[in-house]
Computed example of a mutant assay.
Amino acid sequence: MNFSFSDEEKAFREEVREFLASVLTPDMKRAQGMTPSVFSDKEISDPWHRALASKGWAAPGWPPEAGGPTWTPAQRWIFATECAKAGAPSVSPMGVAMVGPVIIRFGTPEQKAKYLPRILNGEDYWCQGYSEPGSGSDLASLKTRAVRDGDHYVINGTKIWTTHAHHANMMFALVRTDDTGRKQEGISFILIDMTSPGITIRPILTIGGDHEVNQVFFDDVRVPVENRIGEEGLGWTYGKYLLEFERGGGIAAARLRRGLQHVIELANGEAPGQPIDDPALAMKISEIEIDIDALELTELRIMSALQTGQNPGAVSSLLKLRNSEIKQAVTRLAVDVLGYDALVWEPTRPLYGLNRATLPEIELPVVPEYLNSRAFTIFGGSSEVQRDIIAKLMVGL
């Protein structure tokens, strides 16, 4: 794709490149390149978050009055693209990209004053308490209960597939506060201190061998009522608003393009930068490149909507669906290129901590990333759910 930037935008691109060159260390880039998980490891993302915060760039999607930079959609695109090209880690999206916009939109002045600065500077590390055993795609059937007791809620129940709960000191959660009426009407959105008595975290190892997700248990956990976002019983509305940002508030095309470049490097071996000799492989790469171009245009449309104060809307489901499918296509192709080496399994994590050579470094993350990406079409709302939303709200079926 050929974009034409203004002189101001070209100057901004150079500023981003200079910043990346000065802050992004070789060790940080190597560690990120060998991380197969959907999130960057906390030990990588934390120093990166602090560097962005010191520059005022930690929350590109936030309005300036909340601490975000005064960027245009083009600048946001430039920033995300240059970060991906440089191999920068990603900041955990739970705070900046997910609960942050909810607090900005629905939080009280006191909640904004307390939480937004801590999200910006990385002092709070968040996890998401949505899915439960038996309540994933049908999230409105959740059973974790919060019973009012004076100025507190007493929470009992469990959440599952909770990414980075073992690192987080805060959780935003959907809990049931009422059983009357439609099941969506009895849900509230609550912020939970993960150091509260009664919280137990049980690790879950993914098929890719990583400890990303957990099951979290709540046994008579007391949470102040002042930690509730908005009105009691309207959590479903706030939760759906958040999901629009989870599904469509980021820029994935640039990282997908970097992943595809990794496939090309695997295929070329000792001849980097040369054309692919295998016509069938070259065709598959070209097909994925076209899909990434189309996804990129959709992301730019969403960036434009966000810049004018709109939320992503139903088009975020289209973006999430295609991002998931393209990610799986890229990682599947990488395994095909790897051939017999894909049969070698390295159980040590993190991969960048290895002091022995099981495989060449360029090959090490391929199979774990392929296995990890199988969940892309499930988390954040399964592909079937996304297609249903697209059919109803975009196509009108």
Rank of each mutant, 00 (worst) to 15 (best):
S373F: 04
M171Y: 09
E82F: 08
A59Y: 07
I207K: 13
D336K: 14
W48L: 10
G230R: 04
F5I: 04
L243C: 11
V102N: 02
S141G: 08
S6L: 01
R148P: 03
I155R: 04
I187F: 05
Y115Q: 01
P63Y: 05
T163C: 03
E270T: 13
P224S: 08
I119F: 08
F245C: 06
L242P: 00
D149Y: 02
D293Q: 11
G380A: 09
G67H: 09
T348A: 14
I207P: 03
E9I: 09
K114P: 00
P312S: 06
D220W: 01
N156P: 07
N121A: 03
E287T: 12
V366W: 12
S304Y: 09
T108Q: 00
K114M: 07
D41A: 14
Y153P: 06
H49T: 00
R76F: 08
P73C: 05
A113G: 00
A146S: 07
P63T: 10
D219T: 15
A254P: 12
C83F: 03
V96Y: 04
D293W: 05
P64D: 11
N169P: 09
A21P: 01
E8C: 00
E244K: 04
G186I: 05
F79E: 13
V147C: 00
L300H: 08
D193S: 09
T70W: 06
M28D: 00
T200E: 15
R50G: 03
K29Q: 14
P347D: 10
S6Y: 05
S137R: 08
K114W: 05
A252W: 09
A252E: 12
L120P: 04
I288D: 04
C127W: 03
M1A: 14
P63R: 15
K114Q: 13
M171T: 06
I264G: 01
K112E: 00
Y340S: 15
D388I: 08
N156L: 02
E8W: 00
I290R: 11
K114D: 03
L281T: 02
P133V: 04
L321V: 00
A375T: 14
T200N: 14
M303K: 01
M171V: 03
T237H: 12
V366P: 09
T158G: 04
P133T: 05
L281K: 06
P69Q: 10
A59L: 04
E8F: 00
A80R: 08
P64Y: 02
R247C: 14
T25S: 15
E265H: 11
E231W: 02
W77N: 07
G134Y: 12
P47E: 11
A294F: 05
D336C: 05
P47W: 09
K42N: 04
Y238T: 02
L174D: 04
F376A: 14
V221H: 09
A334W: 11
S373T: 11
R374D: 09
D41P: 03
T163E: 04
E287G: 04
S40I: 07
P365R: 07
R228Q: 15
G56Y: 13
V385I: 15
N156Y: 02
K284L: 12
E110Y: 01
I302S: 06
I285C: 08
P133Q: 10
K320G: 11
I44D: 15
I44F: 06
V315H: 09
R387V: 12
G313R: 10
D293C: 07
L20H: 12
R301F: 15
S196Y: 06
F106H: 11
V335E: 10
A334C: 11
D151M: 02
